[in-house]
């Protein structure tokens, strides 16, 4: 379906939807670069208060990394036209995505208990909320997209084996995974 916008002469180039995703990724990265560089500048000032990352965030990290692997397996299954396994792997990725968000919420609660809250003086803890909150929103967006392509494959009008939507999905998923790794390392070192 969506390949039809590509005319014959354009087949050797990157598909426009994939390309658009890479540009979108650059754009999202700029937002996080803005936030984390603000953090770095501020952290050099006196009176900066730091915090300790609760252990549960390691669980999140493992969950989202595993989900990247299952996503990749889904892509492979799709390319081998093994739709059964494709759907299974997509389903697992979806569940892991939700597990990640839940694990994050537990982490947020643990921090809240440790008195890392919104109000009061500036510090690492305050930056933590908008940065990880925005990341979680991007994961939730990915989970919704997973759900959509899962249902599409179940309802199964797709007789054509066009891999573009699945590949776009997996690239985005690996991106939010990589972004979390970056943030995790960032907060471990500078938190």
């Amino acid at each position: 379906m969506s390949t039809s916008i590509v005319s014959t002469q354009q087949h050797n180039k990157l598909h426009p939807h994939k390309f658009a995703l890479w540009v979108a990724i650059a754009s999202i990265l700029m937002m996080f670069a803005g936030l984390t560089s603000a953090y770095v500048v501020k952290s050099n000032q006196t009176g900066w208060r730091s915090f300790v990352m609760p252990k549960i965030f390691w669980v999140s990290t493992v969950v989202i990394m595993v989900s990247s692997i299952t996503m990749q397996m889904a892509v492979k299954a799709f390319k081998n036209r093994n739709m059964q396994q494709y759907r299974a792997m997509l389903g697992v990725t979806f569940v892991l995505g939700i597990a990640f968000v839940i694990s994050q919420v537990f982490g947020f609660e643990a921090l809240w208990e440790n008195n890392v809250r919104f109000k009061g003086a500036s510090g690492a803890g305050q930056f933590f909320w908008p940065i990880t909150g925005l990341h979680a929103l991007h994961v939730i967006g990915g989970v919704v997209a997973l759900l959509i392509i899962f249902f599409r494959s179940v309802i199964g009008k797709t007789k054509t084996y066009n891999p573009v939507p699945v590949e776009v999905m997996s690239t985005y998923w690996h991106f939010v995974d990589g972004l979390w790794l970056y943030l995790m390392i960032f907060f471990l070192i500078l938190g």
Partner: peptide
């Protein structure tokens, strides 16, 4: 595409300061 997201991050922090009591 490369600069609007940075404005967005500034506005998110502004919203936090306005409504959640943060001190960015």
């Amino acid at each position: 595409v490369l600069s609007f997201p940075v404005l967005l991050s500034g506005l998110v922090l502004l919203m936090f300061d306005r409504h959640l009591g943060t001190s960015f």
